[in-house]
Design a protein around this nucleic acid. Structure first.
Lengths: 103, 103
DNA sequence: CGGAATCCTATATGATACTG
DNA sequence: CAGTATCATATAGGATTCCG
């Protein structure tokens, strides 16, 4: 089996791996929302229109795998889970801003 | 019908459109090769291992549509065609370099 | 609430043959 | 040489149901 991390490292083009981290239909939107404050699953589902549980679930897991988001579980009732942006995640934000300005 | 350009403009997240310009398995690699010098189809096909005519063809057309590459046709025999990076394309390079440094 | 499992559709990519 | 056309496969995304 090949892990996500290996895939990223096998790229001939260095930036490819980086773009892959945020590729897909919902990751960038999740990422943007998580920047302002920690986000919760149901909140994302409500805010990101057109999305669905399955796709958000996959996207969140992948963002977590590459350590752009960190999942915080608070074992209370009802279960409370938050996704926080990691330092690595935060470091990408200014570059993404520059990308936006290019368009 | 919806054009590529419209899709890009409809994104909620501004950077999404930018990422989409270079999304896919081969575009970034093509883009990188085209930065050094104008590239030709057969040359790309040889240099980018694992690729194939069909995929490169599609990728090139899309890069052309969003004006990151310009296609130059020299109607001689044999037919000579070059893909050049546009000013818009060149403007993206430094930002991509920064992305690479983040990984 | 926060998902995972399943099933299905859409889009991306690939192999190959053909063309001006 | 520089592709396009066609067909096949692989991956991404979506709808729905189920579970702790």
């Amino acid at each position: 089996m090949t892990t996500k991390k290996e895939l990223v490292e096998n790229e001939t083009c260095p930036a490819q791996g980086l773009l892959k981290l945020l590729s897909g239909k919902w990751k960038l939107e999740i990422f943007r929302l998580a920047f302002d404050a920690p986000v919760r699953f149901s909140s994302l589902l409500r805010q990101i229109e057109g999305s669905n549980k399955q796709s958000l679930s996959v996207a969140l897991r992948e963002l977590e795998e590459v350590e752009l988001l960190e999942k915080i579980v608070i074992t209370a009732k009802p279960l409370h889970i938050e996704y926080h942006m990691t330092p690595k995640g935060k470091s990408m934000v200014p570059v993404l801003k520059q990308l936006e300005n290019l368009l």
